[in-house]
């Protein structure tokens, strides 16, 4: 018994040290965001001498006009939230009708969705830009450099994985529930929105977490559709703008990195249980 306890304590200490090692990069950002440039060059590893520097750096970043922090934060939030709601609802709707309609068309469409999962974005991106240009020429509505263009693209790119996940989950929901609802007088769409959607909650959380992390942190798709240095910028794009502009001004770069990472980390700390549960259950299914 005693021998086991000692083993456990050694293991715990070891894990704790490992955790500190894992946290080293985070500590580096936080320490160095609170220094000015000369101090960073002299000794990047030491503790900061004056914590007020972090505040000065943050103020300076908010003042720079090539990284409009609040604006790009707002755009990031709008794009992420709207695309998540849209991807979730639309994919669940599509998956539900695909599961419940057993024809060769539905199987074919599901196969098309599956094939979309293995198409890497890099293959699609240049023709996509060309297509968006054509769409503007034809309809007169600009898709490049606009929020709705990005959101529509995210719905398309998020659909395959989400439909696949919802498909597997909906298959396990018994048909009897829906039949009972129909007998009680529900229309088809009411069956989905009142019966099926509430049941989908756990897998919906998984979908939100996976897609949310991807969309919030995505760089390539906004870069292609929005472009660098235009009016509509997401957070990763603004950080890239700042780095491109003030190369090697590390105190500002690290502060901006910290400011870009903090919203997600705060969200994670609040919803930790749901996020971890959502991620693992989605992967195992």
């Amino acid at each position: 018994m005693k021998k086991q306890n000692i083993k456990l304590i050694i293991g715990e200490v070891f894990t704790f040290i490992l955790m500190i090692v894992f946290f080293f990069p985070f500590m580096m950002i936080i320490f160095n965001a609170a220094k000015d440039d000369t101090e960073i060059i002299r000794n990047p590893l030491s503790l900061p001498t004056n914590l007020l520097n972090m505040y000065h750096n943050a103020i300076e970043i908010l003042g720079r006009d090539n990284i409009d922090y609040f604006q790009s934060f707002g755009y990031s939030t709008i794009i992420t939230v709207v695309s998540l709601i849209a991807i979730g609802t639309f994919s669940a709707m599509a998956a539900w009708v695909l599961v419940r309609t057993k024809t060769k068309y539905s199987v074919f469409i599901f196969m098309l969705f599956l094939s979309g999962m293995v198409i890497p974005f890099q293959v699609v991106m240049l023709p996509l830009v060309r297509l968006l240009q054509t769409m503007k020429d034809v309809t007169g509505i600009p898709f490049k450099g606009t929020v709705h263009g990005v959101i529509l693209a995210y719905i398309g790119f998020g659909a395959p994985l989400s439909v696949f996940m919802f498909y597997g989950f909906i298959k396990s929901i018994p048909m009897d529930i829906e039949e009972a609802a129909i007998i009680d007088g529900c229309s088809k769409s009411q069956v989905f929105f009142k019966i099926i959607l509430p049941i989908l909650k756990p897998i919906f959380v998984t979908m939100l977490v996976l897609n949310g992390m991807w969309i919030w942190n995505d760089y390539l798709l906004p870069l292609l559709i929005l472009g660098k240095g235009t009016d509509v910028q997401t957070l990763p794009l603004s950080v890239a703008n700042l780095v491109g502009f003030y190369d090697k001004e590390w105190s500002l770069i690290l502060t901006s990195v910290l400011m870009a990472a903090i919203p997600v980390i705060v969200l994670f700390l609040f919803a930790q249980k749901h996020i971890i549960k959502g991620m693992t259950s989605g992967a195992i299914k």
Binding site: I87, A94, I109, L131, L152, I155, A159
Partner: peptide, 9 residues
């Protein structure tokens, strides 16, 4: 979802 998938992917 299928429409935007076809259009954008």
């Amino acid at each position: 979802s299928f429409g935007s998938f076809i259009l954008f992917v």
